[in-house]
Design a protein around this nucleic acid. Structure first.
Lengths: 226, 226
DNA sequence: CCATGTGAATGTTTTCACAGCT
DNA sequence: AGCTGTGAAAACATTCACATGG
């Protein structure tokens, strides 16, 4: 993790800015891989589908990364933002809930490639405990707190049904988890100091149907980042 | 779909409000099922994890649904909002991309329960074409436009890899799709009139790691609805 | 001359606070 | 007495527009 530049350490950075940074990293890495070593905020904005002013403003919270008249070095900026986010290390992740969704998440290679290793699996239901998934053994819920604490895991994924999601989250937090990715269709209550992001495809679909009616025109090119 | 009350037909309602409505519907239906027939904005806010003023303001875009001194009728409000969103009918959905993720989505019962039926499957890769998934035959990409048009499908799910996502989306849109749920880690370019919501768990995780560093305190109980 | 970084302006969203209805 | 619905205020986010530096 790099040091922020002087005058930036204490600024309170809006969460909405933080949520856009991963998309910048992904896009900049892609540009770099395609042989583009430098890019203006204008061109980057076109790739991402936001405004150039927004990119410049977002970056200004962290320092000065561009060269006037030239633009940004794609490789340097990608790895600088990645470092600000803490993506220059691998993070251990615990996952609870091994139904269809949980298994698909364990099989998914995208997390490991992007700084996250799922290293512990839990399930509420006895018939799943002891099963092997992705070379790991599924443990019972009552071990969540202990295992997370022992291994120093800071990130949890909740993939089980709504009815057990809060209890699982509570046990993860008791073990020291400070970030939860929640796939359950329920709003988790967490103490301050814990960040939650919801993955809610059903709500996403249900909100889009509004624009399929005879209401107002749709006209949004929404770029939700979750 | 119910008629909006007079004076509300033409108001331009913020998308951020629309995106919160599914959570209101879900919570109100749950309260109703648990035998709670009436609730104040204050109590509803506590259940959802937002402020009471926000709920009242959000609802005010659509009409007056409460009884002063009493609160809201849970069943009535749930079905009224559902109707505003267009959830009082089932919507046909086309899905492209039948890797692990796509198969998990087809198997997932949550969509069908919440107004969405996946009725057509497509894949770019020849070895998946012709396979049976969830009692449907996987069709090749070059049939996307035709089948969507013939069946009048308005909603698409893009579950394939980033490299083919834009091309698949373009073909869906050519067939008449106006709403896309995008699981691919790429920003889709779509014409005005088409709504896109991103499902991006990797970005969600990557943004939370920011708060696990020695930056500012985490303090957010984020309620992302996508 | 080009494109950043940023004050200032604008636009949007949330919250306050209370008049008014039941 | 309790709680809604909503003007007005405050907070927040985006965009403009330009001085500045390479």
């Amino acid at each position: 993790m790099i040091a922020l530049q002087p005058g930036h350490e204490t600024a309170q950075i809006p969460d909405i800015v933080i949520r856009r940074l991963p998309v910048y990293v992904r896009t900049l890495r892609d540009l770099h891989e395609r042989g583009i070593s430098s890019i203006s905020s204008d061109d980057l904005a076109k790739h991402i589908g936001v405004t150039a002013a927004q990119i410049r403003r977002d970056l200004s919270y962290f320092g000065k990364f561009g060269k006037q008249g030239k633009g940004y070095d794609t490789a340097y900026l990608a790895e600088t933002i990645a470092s600000i986010l803490g993506l220059d290390k691998q993070w251990d992740v615990a996952l609870a809930g091994l139904g269809n969704l949980g298994r698909a998440i364990v099989r998914y290679r995208g997390f490991a490639d992007e700084s996250f290793n799922i290293v512990a699996l839990f399930d509420h239901f006895a018939d799943r405990v002891g099963q092997e998934v992705g070379e790991m053994t599924v443990l019972p819920d009552d071990q969540i707190t202990k295992v997370i604490q022992e291994r120093g895991i800071k990130i949890g994924i909740v993939a089980g049904p709504a009815a057990v999601a809060q209890s699982v989250a509570d046990q993860m937090i008791a073990g020291g988890v400070q970030a939860i990715l929640n796939y359950a269709p329920v709003v988790l209550k967490v103490p301050s100091g814990v960040t939650v992001r919801e993955i809610d495809p059903v709500s996403a679909l249900q909100s889009m149907t509004y624009y399929l009616g005879d209401h107002g025109d749709s006209h949004l090119d929404d770029q939700d980042t979750d």
